[in-house]
Simulated assay, not measured.
Amino acid sequence: MKRVPTVIAALLTSALSFGAMANNVDFPHLSTSGYGEVVATPDMAEFTVRVVETTMTAEQAKQSVDKVVSDFLDELTDQDVSKDNITSSNLYLSPQYHYPKEGKPELVGYRASRTVNVTVDDLTKLNQYLDIALNAGINQVDNISLKVKDSAKYREQARMAAIKDANSKADSLAKGFGHKLGSVWQIDYNMPSSQPVLMRSMAMDAKMESNTYQDSTIVIRDRVDVIYKLD
């Protein structure tokens, strides 16, 4: 009696553990990777700004940075931004040295910095808050991330699309190799650790209209690896 050959179809897989597991299966099977993505319109944002000052003394640097952050937080409060949507870091202070070719390093001042992270529930106000940061004395934008509020809904849609993709590939491959697709034997799924988002950066002296962000889109992706039995 001739043994039915094992069919392995590895499709765009980068998960070595999944591939090794499939190779160790001792019955006719087929393995696929399904991919899904959903395009969403951002309706919120998160940005991180930083103030950096270098002065002759540590106390001057601290006072200067603390004042800028305090003014910025006060302005955000005046704009009815919830305190739950604002986080600020502790002061980071470091001495600055000049290193001559000969002789010992010379202390030339102190560098102080603090960062503030703001969650923006209304995307139309993003540029307004960035302008407030500029006027308060913030001199660096570290990151601007566009997001969606109901991310779980879009993640579920992407996941279902990935499952449908895996099933479609498996059915097509089984038919192409002259087999019937059996039941699912193994599902390997690891939710992505972070949601893919469209990233924007913006110079503090630049002026951009809010609809520049509102016209953007976010692609949310998911993936599932499946091993099917072959009849």
Score class of each variant (00 low, 15 high):
M191C: 06
D215P: 00
L198A: 04
K207F: 09
K180A: 06
L181Y: 03
I218P: 00
W185Y: 13
G182Q: 05
L181V: 09
N167E: 14
L181P: 01
N190E: 14
M204W: 06
A174H: 00
V219E: 06
Q157C: 04
I163T: 02
S193V: 11
S194I: 06
A158F: 07
A203P: 01
A170H: 05
M202F: 06
A161N: 12
M202Y: 03
K175P: 03
M208S: 09
G176K: 07
G182S: 07
I218K: 03
Q157W: 05
I163V: 15
A166F: 12
Q214H: 04
N211W: 08
N167T: 07
S194P: 00
F177W: 05
M202V: 15
G178I: 06
P196S: 15
K175Y: 09
V219S: 11
S216C: 10
M160P: 00
L181G: 04
S210E: 03
S216P: 09
D188P: 00
M191Y: 05
F177E: 06
D205Q: 10
P196I: 15
D215S: 09
A161C: 06
M191H: 08
H179P: 02
N211A: 05
L181A: 08
A158Q: 05
N190Y: 08
D188W: 10
V197R: 02
S193W: 07
P192M: 12
V197L: 05
S183F: 07
H179F: 10
M202L: 15
K164W: 01
T212D: 12
K175R: 14
A162H: 07
S216Y: 02
V184D: 07
H179T: 08
T212W: 06
K180Q: 13
I187E: 15
D205K: 05
V184S: 03
K175H: 08
A203N: 08
F177M: 06
S216G: 13
P196R: 11
S193L: 12
G182D: 02
K169Y: 02
F177Q: 04
M191T: 13
V184F: 10
A166W: 06
F177S: 04
S193H: 12
V184A: 08
G178A: 11
V184G: 03
T212M: 13
